[in-house]
C-alpha cells in the first residue's frame, strides 16, 4: 500500500486539518470532527446537517457552505459518525427554525442519526430526517437493509440547501429532499477495489479482465462480477438497471461520478454513452455534473445518478452555491 498519509490512525484528523487550512470560510473542529460554516447559524433559517464515514470526499464536508449544508460530521473511514458529533452539530446550526438531517441509508448511519435525533428532540430541537436510498443495485424489501444512499445524496443536499437558504420552513425543506430522492436513481461499477488505510490491502480482488457491477461506496463487492467490456456496454447495464426502476423521460439532471481513482477523460467517455442512452429514450440532459463527488477512496470506477427534474427542482439546482466542492452563481 502506498498512500500519502502520516499514519493509518491519523488520516481523518490530518485531512480535516488540511481542509481547515485551505478553507477559512469553514469552521473545522478537528478534535470533535465537526465542520460548520464560519458564520454560525442564521436566525430563522433551517439548518442542514449531514454526515457519514470518511473516504467519500468531497462528500460531505466539501458541501458545507452557502446554499448547501450548514454542518458535516465525518466519521472514521467508512464508519458513520457517533451521536455526540451529530448532536453537537445539530445544536451548532440551529437558528431556531429546526434542523434537517440528511442520512444515507446504511444501518450504522441510520442508527447513529436516530439516536442523535431522539436526544435533540428531548432537548426541544425540532429535527426532520431525509433518508437517501437511490441505489438500484440493491433490492428494497423487508428482508434486506434496503437500498443504499449514494450519488443522489449530493442532489438532496444541494436542492434542499437552496430551499433552506431561501427561508423555507423545515417541513418544506424535508419534503423537497424526499422528492429529490424519490426522483433519483443510481448504479455503480468498479474496475478495481479500494484500499482502506487500516486494512492496507484491497477490500476484494478483481482479475485483470473483471469488473464488479452494482457496487456501493465502501469497497464492498457488488452484486455480480462480469468480464471487462467497452464503456458503451458497461454504461448500458447501468442505465438499463436505472431505467427499469424509474423510466427515464423529460428533463434530467445527470451525475457521472468518479469513485476516486478514475481519470476524468474516462468519465467523459462514460458521459457520452449516458447521453446517447438518454437520447434514444427521448430524455433530455438539462443539467449535469462530471467528476469525483461521492468517492470510495482510491477505487477505480464510476457511478451514474439520474434525477428527473421539475421546473422547481431545476430552479433550486441553479440557485447560488458556494462550498469547497460545488460553487456557482455567486
Amino acid at each position: 500500500m502506498k498512500k500519502l498519509i502520516n499514519g493509518a490512525d491519523s488520516v481523518v484528523s490530518d485531512a480535516l486539518t488540511g481542509l481547515a487550512a485551505a478553507h477559512p470560510e469553514l469552521r473545522v473542529d478537528v478534535a470533535k470532527r465537526i465542520v460548520t460554516r464560519a458564520g454560525g447559524p442564521r436566525r430563522g433559517k433551517v439548518g442542514l446537517v449531514s454526515g457519514g464515514g470518511s473516504g467519500h470526499e468531497p462528500l460531505h464536508a466539501g458541501f458545507v457552505g452557502h446554499g448547501m449544508l450548514d454542518a458535516a460530521c465525518p466519521g472514521e473511514i467508512f464508519t458513520s459518525p457517533v451521536p455526540d458529533q451529530l448532536i453537537e452539530a445539530t445544536n451548532a446550526v440551529n437558528g431556531g427554525a429546526g434542523v434537517l438531517h440528511i442520512v444515507k441509508n446504511y444501518t450504522g448511519d441510520v442508527l447513529n442519526f436516530e439516536m442523535a435525533a431522539e436526544l435533540c428532540a428531548e432537548d426541544g430541537v425540532e429535527v426532520a430526517t431525509v433518508l437517501v436510498n437511490d441505489d438500484v443495485a440493491v433490492q428494497d424489501s423487508l428482508f434486506t437493509a434496503g437500498r443504499r444512499g449514494t450519488g443522489a445524496t449530493l442532489f438532496v443536499e444541494k436542492i434542499a440547501g437552496a430551499l433552506a437558504e431561501g427561508g423555507a420552513p423545515l417541513d418544506e425543506v424535508a419534503s423537497v429532499g424526499n422528492e429529490v430522492n424519490a426522483r433519483s436513481r443510481s448504479f455503480g461499477v468498479a474496475l478495481s477495489a479500494c484500499t482502506t488505510p487500516t486494512a492496507g490491502k484491497p477490500t476484494f480482488e478483481l482479475g485483470e479482465g473483471e469488473i464488479e457491477l452494482g457496487i456501493g461506496i465502501h469497497g464492498e463487492p457488488g452484486r455480480v462480477r462480469a468480464p471487462m467490456a467497452p464503456a458503451r456496454e458497461i454504461v448500458r447495464v447501468a442505465m438499463d438497471a436505472i431505467h427499469e426502476d424509474l423510466p427515464l423521460s423529460g428533463d434530467t439532471l445527470v451525475l457521472v461520478n468518479g469513485m476516486g481513482g478514475t481519470p476524468l477523460i474516462e468519465l467523459y467517455v462514460v458521459f457520452a454513452e449516458v447521453a446517447a442512452y438518454l437520447g434514444e429514450r427521448g430524455a433530455r440532459i438539462s443539467r449535469s455534473l462530471v467528476g469525483d463527488y461521492v468517492t470510495s477512496l482510491d477505487m477505480q470506477g464510476f457511478s451514474v445518478t439520474v434525477c428527473r427534474l421539475s421546473e422547481e427542482l431545476t430552479r433550486l439546482w441553479d440557485a447560488p452555491v458556494q462550498t469547497p466542492a460545488l460553487r456557482w452563481g455567486r
Binding site: G75, S80, P81, V82, L111, N112
Partner: peptide, 10 residues
C-alpha cells in the same frame, strides 16, 4: 455508543 460509530457502536 460514543466511540465506535457504524452499526456496531449503537
Amino acid at each position: 455508543i460514543r466511540k465506535v460509530g457504524g452499526a456496531s457502536g449503537p
